[in-house]
Structures are given as C-alpha cells and as structure tokens.
Nucleic acid binder design. Sequence first.
RNA 1: GCCGACGUGGUGGAACUGGUAGACACGCCAGACUUAGGAUCUGGUACCUCACGGUGUCCGGGUUCGAGUCCCGGCGUUGGCACCA
Length: 813
Amino acid sequence: MSDSPTPPETPAYDPSTVESVWQTRWAERGTNAPELATGRDPYYQLMMFPYPSAEGLHIGNLFAFTGADIHGRFQRLQGRTVFEPIGFDSFGIHSENFAIKVGAHPARLTPRNVENFRRQLHRAGLMVDWSKEVVTSDPGYYKWTQWLFLQLYKQGLAYKKAAAVNWCPSCKTVLANEQVKDGHCERCDSLVEQRLLEQWFFRTSQYAPRLLDNIATLDWSETTRQAQRNWIGRSEGAHVTFRVANAHDVTVFTTRPDTIFGATWVVLAPEHPLVHEITTPAQRSVVDEYLERTKTQDVVSRKVNKEKTGVFTGAVAINPATGQPIPVWVADYVLMEYGTGAVMGVPGHDERDFEFAEKFALPIVRVVAGVDDDAAAPLTAAYAAKRDADLLVNSAHFSGMPVPQAKKAVVAWLEERGSARPVVNYRLNDWCISRQRYWGPPIPIIYCDSCGPVPVPEDQLPVVLPLIEDFRPDDSGISPLARHDEWYRVPCPQCGVMSRRETDVSDTFLDSAWYFLRYPSADRTDVPFDAALTKKWLPVTTYIGGNEHAVLHLLYSRFITMVLKDAGLIDFEEPFTRFRAHGMIIRDGAKMSKSKGNVINPDELIDRWGADSFRTYLMFLGPYEEGGDYRDSGITGVRRFLDRTWGSVHECVTTGTADPTVMRKLHATIKKVTEDIPALGYNTAIAAMMEYVNVLRASERTVHHDEVAPLVQLVAPFAPHLAEQCWEVLGHSGGSIFDAGWPTFDPAMLVADTLTIAVQINGKTRGTVQVARDATQDDVYAAALKEPNIAKFVTTVPKKIIYVPGRLLNIVV
RNA sequence: GCCGACGUGGUGGAACUGGUAGACACGCCAGACUUAGGAUCUGGUACCUCACGGUGUCCGGGUUCGAGUCCCGGCGUUGGCACCA
C-alpha cells in the first residue's frame, strides 16, 4: 500500500517465492490445523483420499482436491472452523500389483510413494491439516480396521461360506462382483473364472432397504444417487409356488405375476438345491451332464455368450393359475444369486423366455395385449407390456383387466389359494471381503479345532501383517500368508490349543469404508474414534470425490456407518450429509493414460506457472461437476489475471475515494462469487473476477485500495498464496487472510441509476434505450420511439406492448 | 434392453424463475511500445452481406408477444446397470 500519488515500482509476481514463503508460514503458524475440540461452527470438508501410486499425483487428483480445497477455504472465510484432512489409501491390491510389476516389496515401496505424494500435495497449497493424516497400511490404522471387522462379526454381520466366487487368474485373487465388468477383471481386464472358495462376507443385503430408502434424504449429486439406486436394484413382485409331483414345491420370483396364465414352464438355476430331488431317474444322466458342463464353464460364456442352453428334468409342475401341468427345466440363464434361483417361463412376455421357447419348442401363450392388438395372432417376439393401457387376455376372469391392476389382483387371488405372496427383491448382494493376497489387514480370526472360529481378542489387535519376502500370490487360491506357519500357528484365545490364523486379508474397500471416522481422532491410539470429537465433527459436512466411487466406496461407507449406528457406537447413520461428484479431466477428448502418452505431470506445471495459476486454471477450464479437456494454452489467461491482480494491489493508493462505478461492479462481483462457490460454480466465479479486474484496470485509471482489497479476499480460495501475500502488502501482517472474513455486498449498490432496456419489435431485438431506474412502461416506450432504428418499424398503433421491468420492451405491430 | 446426463462460434465454455445468445478465456486479426518479443498494452473477432438487412444454440414440429431454456417426435455423444425374471 502506498500513500504516494505516483505508484512505486511493482515487484514482479514470482509464484515460486511467494508460494514457498507461505507454505512455510502456514506450517509454522499451524494455520491449517484447527482446534478440533474447541473450534466453533465445525465444518468437515472431506476429499477422497488417494491411492499413492508410484507415478505420483495425477492431474485428476489435483483437480479433485483443489475443488474441495476451494470449498473448504470458502467455508473458513465465512467464519467456520474447517477441518480438511487427507490421507493415503495405501493398502490393497492396486499397491501390491504395482509392487509386483516393478519387482519391489509393497512394504518398502509404499512409504516412498506416500512421501512423494506428501511433497506434491504440499506444493499444491491445500488447506490440509497434516497433523491428522491417515495411512491405511499403518498398523495404527489397520488395527481399527480389524476391530471394525470384529464389530460386524459380533453382530452376526460377518459370516463365512463356501461360495462360487469370481477368480481373476492374472491378479490371482477373488474379486467382488463389483470388480467384474462384462466378465472381465476391472483392474487387469483378464477373463474372470468361477471358483468355489471359503470366503468372508458382510451382510450388506440385509441393509438394502435402508440403504435405498435413505437415499431420498441425502443431499448428493443426482447422478450418484441414481447409480446407488440402480445398484441396490429394488424390484416389486411376488413369490409364486408351483406344486411338483412327489417332490418339494418350487418357488419362483417374478415381477410380472399378471402374466402367470402364460407360464408354460418352470426353470431352475443349475445351482438350485432342488435340482437333484426333482430330476426323474430317466433324466438324471442328462441333467448331471448339464450341471457338470455349466459348472466348468467360466463366467464369460455364461454372462457374455447369451445363447440359451438347458435340459428338461423330467419333473412336472402345476401352474397354480391354470391348473395345467408344465415341465420343469434347468438352465443357466437363471441366476442362483437373484430372487429364488427359479423363474416361471413366460415366453409371450419376456425376451429371454421367448428365446428359450423357440430353441426348445415350448408353447408360447399370449396373455397381454395392447388395445389395438389382435390377441389371437401368434407372437413373433416377446411382448413386454409398455403401456398401462395394456390388458390381460387368455387369463380366465382376469382377461380385460389393465396390467397395473392385474399385477396386484392376480397375486391377491393366488395368495388366497396359498400359492403366492407379494415380495420385494433387491439386487444387492452380500459383500465378499476376503482376499487371498498379502498387502492388506489380516482378518482377525483364529480357527480352533474345538472352539471353531474365534475372534482375536481386541486387546491383541493389531494382528500385524508380517514382513515376508514371498508375498506374491500364486494359483493355489490360498493367501501367501498361508505359507508361513510361524505366523499363522497360534494358540486358541479361548482354550489355548495350537490353532491357525485366518490367512486371508480384507478388501481395500473396507479400509476406505471408515477412514472419515478416523481423521478427527487420527492421533488417538486408544480408540478408533473419540466419542466427543465424532459427535462434534461427523457426519461429514461436504464430501467431494469422483463418480467412479459412486457405487462401491460410498455404498460400503454408508453400510459401515449404519452398522456402527446400530451397535450404538455413533449416533448418525449416514456418513456424508452432502456429496458432490466432480467431473473428469480428459485430454484431447480421451482419458489420460500412460499408454496414450497424454499424461500431464503437475510438478512441471507448478514449476512453470505456480500452484496458484495451476489451481485457478484447473477450476476455470470447465464446470467442476463436469470436468473438461485439459489444454496448456488456456493457463496463460489465468496467469495474466493473477498478474493483473497482483499489479493492482501493489499500485493501489489510499488517497482520494473509490470510483462509484467500479464499486458497483465490485459489489456485483462479490455477490456472484459468494453465490457461485458453494454451488461449485468455480469457472463462472473466476470469470466474474476477471471481468472485475478488466474494469478495475481500464486504461489510465488509478486503482484505489478499497476497490482492490475485497478482490484479494475473493481470489483467496483459488490462489491462496498470492492472496496471503497481497493481504500483507495491503497492511495486514502476522495472520492469515483466511481468518479475515469474507466481504459482503450491499444490495443497494447493485442498482444502477440508469437501466439499459432491450427493445424488440415482434420479438426481434432492434436496439436498446437508456432509461432512469424508476421509468414506467410509458417512459420506456416513449424513449424507444425516439430511436430511429426502432421508430421506423412502428408505423401503426402497436397491437400489444409487453414490458418486462428493467429488462425489455417488446412492441408487437 | 433399462435408467441418467448432454448436444451453443475456430476452441474451452457463459446465459438467473422463458426476456439483448455467445459473458470470461484461449486462438486469430490489426495497432501501440520495442533492437527484438512466445512480454505488456489498446481495439476487433458467430455466420452471410459493401450496406440496409438476413440467418443462427443437433434435426423436425408445437406452445408463447418472445424459446438455447418449456412440450412432442427424431438423430448423435456420453455415464451407470444388464440373462436381475
């Protein structure tokens, strides 16, 4: 700041100096480490913690973190105590696979990667509280991950069962259903096989209704909420029981009970427990052969190659609606995991059933028709009811009834006869958390021959992952830990007899399903999370992250939170009050990847332009929630903007008064930025500030202190180092601009004395007129007629005049 | 197949509840200052037209004084789910 009318020489803006100075000061002064116990108006700003890859911080990480950081800094400028922690998701298959690839040991590689990430994150100027860092591969963390497993175990929510699981032959491990895409491993793209292994599961399916219903209460990005709903997959329908002579009844699940009069067979999944009982002696060999064939078939040919196969069991069931006998088949197009593992075949109104009927020459009966359809004509394809006006046909006394009504009526009718009941079904499966791998938290269970599975007593946690050199997985389906009897042989905690530890580790998603609970208490070694801090700081106020985790991570976190609530350990059941999904940064229209050679190194960009310019540019290149295409060229504009801001601060004077027109623009800018930031409208907020700087630095004018000081505050969330430095130049030393509050705007300042009104003739804009603020429609009309360009169109008395106050006048001639 | 998002200059993108389409920025053009400039500053830049004017927000209809915005029908891009009965 200067009192002299002739401004002094402005020092050049040198980001690298300014940024290192302020990063050091923040660390020394503890600027970013709030007093969690005493801070008032707590605001928990969470960003999805990264997996510390060997490549270092990715531009997508920085985009995500910067957006979250701006939001957090803004909340702090609003006077809240903002907690913005970060950590590293350093356990798990991704870290391990990379270590294997480069021939390193994950236990040695991971600390190096984490250190590199810390360095890069520091450079980015995030308002992170480093005193609460969390590292999931740290025993001090995974001790509590194991503790969490035990809480689920105690509540009967963790169980072990032999299950056909997805086995990736390349990763040599079991994959969750969520990690299989089109029959391929999500991570390495290998074909996934089926294997039967003993696995630990969490009963997520038990929470399906709650996980679904609560979605309505969440302030989340709609895309994310929709993805969760799809994943949980609620279907309303019915269980219908078909009598089978000399055997157990078969119960099927259907969402179309109204079509039961068209059910011409029943079909069981190959894994269905009744298959053997039902099969007649004559068909036994055929069925056994079929079962053998489907069992050895890999997941791909079952899920991708959709050619229908199946065999007749010889059994006959009775259609409860028609009383007619129908055949019972076995076919692998029926999934054991969904519904009851059995369905009724209604070829007339289900595509898959139609295909099956054609292949095996089974009768096709039409039982639903549109109003204009000929119900007697044979079907050439399945007719799935599309309109509510569709009516039942060939369905006894239900014929003529509209489909929606019939869905209920048919079930009620069958229910009276004891052969149906309404049911709601969910697609969500239980969560398989076992991994036959090394780099994860050992599951804290000990198998004793006399006591069975015994949980490791909590005071013996953590079960430390031993440092073994032969950590690579092999084809055996057992964990590398199972090769180390010196590790797994332990006395039973209950009876003392020599027993065996569980040698599987848990899924990475378990590590990340509770990390947000750990942050506030990260420095506590005696509890997973402190009760008082948790009560004060959770649930998370705003969570920002990528939509690639819309299903898995967010769903698992919600599940774990509900479980802890039910256990009485916390008093909320939804972890993230507000969630916003950021977009993706692409390059030249494609995802960035090493193979495409279009990866950007953030270090180089920060070296060249400074973190502040880089941050601001990332936020400027597109709407935050949509992402955008990264191009180097655009960053110069942002850097120019910061240079000009810097220049204005150094050149400003305190003599004289601020210009009223400039001040009006300033207040409009404050309003815009204040509204845009909480809505994550970063690109438009930056544009507004650029507009203001353009006004501020219009040629030949001297910038006044009062015109530029609020601008520095507005810029602060985006370019925090520059803002700190400028704030000091403006006379505030010793503290931080982030404790200086946020400028307010005066609504009275937003109203100009004169207004520009657009004038249209028949809806076409022909010009504008300047009128006084309080002008009436007549005033505006009179002013408009004085404009020759407008008057020439008004040759007769207008038919109609529409006036939108303050905006526009439309003259209809 | 089901569910969702989107489609605007040479480019990234603006546009509140329908109300001056193209803010802001990149690029480009011209000029100033310069030995020079990939620095800085000033002005211009949707398209057609010398101009008057006309045409323009994926395409075709509609509602309205007025449509990028609302409605109907297409086309295209993209995300999620998917033999889920």
